[in-house]
């Protein structure tokens, strides 16, 4: 899809793009130039009559769409200016941290997702003392670059079940809990926690400590950056035992062959 990406990059600068509709995914930039298309947001004169319009493409998506993966690889492996440590130090050379470490696996995340997290660390929407200074030191171009590189790191295939799995955790992940109005984790995060779409990260194989820390962050409003704003409520409503069960369950779905 690199052709498509290029076309989108061109589009973003010139015309703007809708998030929900994702209106312009074309493989051929020449075809795009021939097209009479302009996005309604840019087409409507500000003084024109009102009509409802799609959301604008957020800045993190714009930098993710135009990121330079080679620059990103450099920062990921060797760090960057302003004291930015190499991402691989904690998150592992292939975006997979060493077993037992509390850091999240980055392999398998989309460029949009990674760019959004870095923007949100910098703004404080997602609070993390280790990440904040790095995110603040990175320029938008560098954020786009790192995000684009991370998106090239293939997600390891994870197990569909495990002997150590926590049954209660599996239950919540697969069917949810009516009593607390908890949707199944899989309704968004995909089957067996393998992630879904660009903005719904895989959960399978993430360290138990990391999943717990995120639940705590959502409960305490130290993290409030999920796009559809459901995680705060879900984390608040889930009993502590269920949070632990879910964290143990996803952590038990390890990378295949581990």
């Amino acid at each position: 899809m690199s052709g498509g990406k290029l076309a989108i990059g061109v589009t973003v600068v010139g015309l703007g793009i809708s998030v929900l509709a994702g209106a312009l995914v074309v493989g051929n930039p020449a075809a795009l130039l021939r097209s009479a298309y302009t996005h309604p947001e840019t087409a409507a004169a500000p003084s024109g009559p009102y009509y409802p319009q799609p959301e604008r493409l957020p800045p993190y998506s714009q930098v993710a769409l135009t990121g330079d993966a080679r620059l990103g690889e450099q920062i990921f492996n060797r760090g960057g200016g302003g004291g930015v440590a190499a991402c691989s130090t904690c998150h592992g050379a292939q975006g997979v941290p060493v077993a037992g470490a509390p850091y999240p696996r980055l392999a398998g995340l989309s460029a949009d997702y990674v760019a959004k997290q870095l923007y949100d660390y910098a703004s404080g929407e997602r609070t993390n003392e280790q990440m904040r200074p790095f995110a603040k030191a990175l320029s938008p171009v560098e954020i786009g670059a790192v995000a684009t590189f991370v998106a090239t790191l293939k997600a390891p295939e994870t197990e569909l079940s495990s002997p150590a799995q926590v049954e209660r955790g599996r239950q919540i992940a697969e069917i949810g809990d009516n009593a607390h109005a908890i949707p199944a984790c899989g309704a968004c995060h995909g089957l067996a926690g393998r992630g879904q779409g660009d903005m719904l990260p895989p959960l399978a194989g993430q360290p138990r400590a990391y999943i717990l820390s995120q639940f705590n962050a959502w409960r305490a409003d130290r993290r409030q950056n999920d796009q559809v704003t459901v995680m705060h409520g879900i984390a608040q409503r889930m009993p502590v035992e269920d949070i632990e069960a879910v964290a143990s369950y996803f952590a038990s779905l390890r990378q295949k062959g581990q």
């Binding site: 809708s18 929900l20 509709a21 994702g22 209106a23 309604p40 087409a43 409507a44 009509y51 409802p52 319009q53 799609p54 959301e55």
Partner: peptide
């Protein structure tokens, strides 16, 4: 607002 619906509104 879905894209097609926005074109209609316009």
């Amino acid at each position: 607002v879905p894209f097609a619906a926005a074109l209609f509104g316009e």
